[in-house]
Write a protein that binds this DNA or RNA. Structure first.
Lengths: 148, 148
DNA sequence: ACTCGTGTTTGGTTGTTATCCAACAGTTCG
DNA sequence: CGAACTGTTGGATAACAACCAAACACGAGT
């Protein structure tokens, strides 16, 4: 029972596409949305859905497999590895801290007051939480361009 | 009177170094820390301080000049362009929204509750605000590795 | 067997990123 | 002038990212 995934690529971020895909699978596993044994999109399927080259997905999946997070099975598909485990709350915090730090650096350089930063973050969180469209739509994966 | 800058490179972010440098100069100008006419580090000086190749700084400066944010003057140095202006509060919010969105995506994928996200953001903001060491140190630019 | 969807592999092309080295040229000051 | 800064330019190398295309191999179903 693979859950609905919502992978989001930002072309203008400068971050390699395969890295973005890797990161987001990691987050899904870290948060327990994706659990051991769950099937994830096939290489061709994901490549098609995200409009990227299949070899790019291959690279992401290969790296994820090398790190032990997923398993590719010839002829069957790709699955979350049996021993892949969700992060503890502490680990999740540390994982999120990287992005939070980047945000903090930018905000500080712009001399933006903390309350305003918090407001923006709240808004973005809210935007995603309310974005539960596609929940019972017959689409497994939604591609959302960078939003800009 | 160029203010003290605190440029921070994260090698593991996947974002090209010259892009990181560009972004941070943009933020400093956006927030009014860097103002028109202010001198910014020379190419060689910045390259040395951040331990990157001078040509990498050249690329960043050239792009920034092309976008009208700075000016390079042969033999004299690099300066914030006369017509470079700080962002309005609304523009600052929009600029920060990009990073905030990325943070929100990750948090959501990890199913992290909003309050916990806010807490982490607050902590990182606080860490930078208290990090005023090097304020009156005879160093113009501090290099801070990705922090991890 | 056949077919379809799966992962696998190979080779090539294109463009980007970043490095290193070297030389040239403008500015300022002693 | 000469020294010490500055930006400018060119060539070369290496690694990486992403694309494209074609073929090969495994699994499950008909």
């Amino acid at each position: 029972m693979p859950p609905k995934l919502h992978l989001q690529l930002d072309e203008r971020s400068g971050v390699p596409v395969y890295r973005q895909m890797m990161d987001q699978f990691k987050y899904y596993v870290a948060g327990g949305v994706l659990r051991p044994g769950d099937q994830i999109p096939s290489i061709r399927e994901l490549a098609s859905a995200l409009q990227v080259n299949p070899t790019t997905v291959v690279k992401a999946y290969t790296e994820l497999e090398r790190s032990g997070l997923i398993e590719k099975r010839h002829g069957k598909g790709a699955f979350v590895a049996p021993n892949a485990r969700a992060f503890t709350q502490l680990e999740q915090e540390e994982a999120l801290r990287r992005s939070a730090k980047q945000l903090a650096v930018e905000a500080t350089q712009m001399q933006m007051p903390a309350p305003k930063v918090i407001t923006v973050v709240r808004e973005e969180l809210g935007a995603l939480h309310s974005d539960r469209s596609g929940e019972d739509v017959p689409v497994k994966f939604a591609v959302v361009g960078g939003g800009a």
